[in-house]
């Protein structure tokens, strides 16, 4: 069970207090009317699925209730960073674990 560091609460809490929020940094287009059908469908349905370092959202549903972002290596399941929405994604290399 992952220990997830909530940047709002300032501490690590067990995974069961949180809900996964999908890929991070998928910004809703500012002007959806100006987006073509194909690009809009991409935005709705397509997400990356890397084996390795991945930025994702979590919400502390049974805690402070706030969303934040996490960088996690999907292969090793290690959490590498946690940061608030609006903050830049930290540049982190993969740990190279299997």
């Amino acid at each position: 069970m992952l220990l997830i560091p909530c940047p709002w609460c300032g501490m690590e809490r067990p995974e069961i207090e949180f809900r996964h929020g999908g890929e991070a940094h998928v910004a809703r287009p500012q002007d959806p009317a100006a987006v073509g059908d194909e690009a809009w469908t991409e935005y709705l349905y397509f997400r990356s699925n890397p084996k390795g370092v991945f930025a994702e959202r979590w919400r502390h549903t049974f805690g402070c209730g706030r969303f934040f972002n996490v960088v996690r290596d999907t292969a090793s399941d290690r959490i590498l960073a946690a940061y608030k929405p609006g903050e830049p994604r930290p540049a982190i290399e993969s740990e190279g674990l299997p």
Binding site: R19, G21, A27, R28, R59, R66, F67, P85, G86
Partner: peptide, 13 residues
């Protein structure tokens, strides 16, 4: 409520 909070916190902040 979760849907509203999602948009409020992350899109229309």
């Amino acid at each position: 409520l979760a849907h509203m909070e999602d948009y409020l916190q992350t899109e229309f902040a």
